[in-house]
Write a protein that binds this DNA or RNA. Structure first.
Lengths: 216, 216
DNA sequence: TGCCCTAATGACCGTTAGTCAGTGGCTGAC
DNA sequence: GTCAGCCACTGACTAACGGTCATTAGGGCA
């Protein structure tokens, strides 16, 4: 049945075309302002068709998010390869993730709303499964960096790699969240602040907290 | 004009009654699921009337949030009075804020969406001004704790109190965000994790990063 | 040629934030 | 005491948007 195979290829191609359109629009306006009608228009399809390929708006967004986080992993691995110690690698994971969110702020906002969605978001779809897996890979790099540091003597031995990696990840999440919205946050705070500086302060603080010996 | 004064009192009382209703409902369902019709029903007013007292849903939520954060400040001050050193006070600020968000998870979610809203949210209303001011007070306590630690020798001298307080605040934000959604986050991660432990790991790490001397 | 199956359509629905022309009761001038 | 005017309040209405479904188009197979 060559017909069935062609149909399957066409189906995948159409799905990718929808994702292309959604990704383009998302880069402009973000996930929350993304309109399903606009996606349909941009993909030159009717709205109903979008729902033949994605269960709902969130599943579509997860599809876009999966594509983006795919771009992060090779960059992260390239940067990690250059590091001289485990502690250096820890800092590199944080810095690379930060740089990535600067390039793709909407992706980060989506990740935050996904993580904080509670029961609201139905993430049982295939697109979410994939996204979840990718996030796990990033976290695994942090765990590995800590273990490497404990092996090479740059990271203190009394930290537990997995909880510590989660601490690094979640605290970085907060710092990035604030930095990403620095214009509005600094307006919204009563004191003057330099929120770019805070990112460096944070990465430095994390390094001090993990370092085996007091750093200069 | 005793009439004008009575009118003003009534206006304030009505506003408070609306806030009462909104706060009650918010505690049940959260800000996002709060329906303006439901607020109107609960306050025994028509929906239009709600909009005579609050510009929009966000302003109403900011009103509720202001009330809640008002509860935090006295508790924080009480807890800080018991601390034995500046470093201890830093930890107490973090712990108290964490405990508060456990009691009022919806408030925290609102704060996060406010901070990450970018241009979306119009926070020029009076309710937001007040809320902003209160958040500033909490931050100020963190700054003061660091300065106190530098004075009493518990905190290293090479940290700049304001950026460091912002680092503490924003990183704690991320850790709390993850903890608040721990059920869904742990489901969504491919590895098993204890997210309550991560909060303690974080506060410990922060203390190590700020401590003047290596802690045991 | 004609039947069938799949992909695609777009008018339609439900929900919900926000609006506005209309109502009624209190006030204060006369 | 009367009544014009003001003001708080009303609730039906609109707009926007995510999601649905009865219907249609057209390629493939007997």
């Amino acid at each position: 049945m060559a017909v069935a195979e062609r149909r399957e290829r066409e189906r995948i191609a159409r799905r990718e075309a929808i994702l292309d359109a959604a990704q383009r629009l998302t880069a402009e306006v973000g996930y929350q302002a993304l309109r399903m009608d606009a996606v349909a228009d941009a993909a030159e399809l009717s709205k109903g068709t979008i729902y033949l390929y994605f269960a709902n708006k969130e599943a579509l967004c997860a599809g876009v998010a999966s594509r983006l986080i795919d771009e992060l992993l090779p960059v992260l691995e390239k940067n990690l390869a250059k590091t001289s110690s485990g502690l250096d690698a820890v800092q590199q994971v944080l810095q690379t993730y930060f740089d990535f969110t600067r390039e793709h702020p909407h992706h980060f906002r989506f990740a935050v709303s996904w993580l904080s969605s509670g029961e609201r978001m139905d993430d049982s779809t295939e697109a979410f499964q994939l996204y979840r897996e990718r996030v796990g890979h990033v976290l695994q790099h942090a765990v590995t960096a800590i273990e490497r540091g404990q092996a090479d003597g740059s990271v203190r031995l009394d930290v537990d790699p997995l909880p510590q990696a989660l601490q690094l990840w979640s605290s970085m999440l907060g710092v990035i969240l604030i930095n990403l919205n620095k214009e509005s946050v600094s307006q919204r705070l009563p004191m003057p602040v330099d929120l770019d500086q805070v990112v460096n302060v944070h990465i430095e603080a994390m390094a001090r907290a993990l370092a085996r010996k007091e750093r200069s």
